[in-house]
Amino acid sequence: MSHRRIRFYGAAGQLGTIAVTLLGLLLLTFFIGRLMPADPVRAIVGEDATRETYEQVYRSLGLDRPLWEQFAYYLGDVFTGNFGTSIRTGQPVIQDILHVMPATIELATFAILIGAGLGVPLGVFAAVNKDRWLDHVVRVFSLFGHSMPIFWTGMIALIVFYAHLGLVGGSGRMDQFYIGLVEERTGFLLIDSLIAGEMDVFWSALNHIILPAALLGYSSSAYITRMTRSFMLDQLGQEYVTTARVKGLSRNQTIWQHAFVNIRVQLVTIIALAYGSLLEGAVLIETVFAWPGFGQYLTNNLITGDMNAVMTCVLIVGVIFIGLNLLSDVLYRIFDPRTR
């Protein structure tokens, strides 16, 4: 009973924290919208509009009302799913975002699978072989991934793997030929093409995503490797590792069954954060590979001062991070009995 009550309060407290964070986030996006030097009215009416037109639009946007009232309207809009219209595209912002987000999610998910799939084993490997040449190789490898500017590696990779070797597809999400062939249902091209049974499109999409995803994955694996290595070194120095060896477990069994299970929690946290920053949009790689994703969208909006769209993008990035933090909190509770 008491256990259940503690859990209930824990969950309630968590929800409270999320609500407060969300409110703070909304305040932030609201004030970004108000304080940015861009003039939303001017952006709509253009430079040549008469004073009267300007005043009219100014009032219709509610900008003559007190700030708190404007914020209340903003809250109401957000909770009814109305994020305004993009000045740049003339479409509802939410529709634009729903269009670009799947491309980024697809790329980011692919990339994090590569990053974690590469980084975690390498980190463990490096920790186990600390200060031996294998460790040094891994460290140089990950340092390389961390310090190479990704637009440069992106271009080099395109030149080598696409232009010269022809192993992968070039820029875009699929070959020009296939564009518009598959009906957009989820927006995830790999899934849509499978649903439609268009295997050619699927292979083309896979061929296009593999290179940018590998580059992003490599660059985030650098961080994941380093963190895994240091978490693992921490655990390998613990006395319970000796206990496991004394019981007769082999080195590998000890590493994976005892030490590794103790770093899962920390790993989940850093992988979630790495995933978050990938979702936020990899502007550079999206630009190099002409990937129509969230990063490009956000950057274009910033450049053109499309305030409704910028506010919504910031809000989405914030929500993504709140969500990932929540996820890692929940996993903490599952993985570590001491936090229950």
Binding site: E239, T242, T243, N262, D336, P337
Partner: peptide
């Protein structure tokens, strides 16, 4: 305190 695995 240290010789038992804390999460098993």
């Amino acid at each position: 305190k240290f010789s038992l695995n804390p999460i098993r």
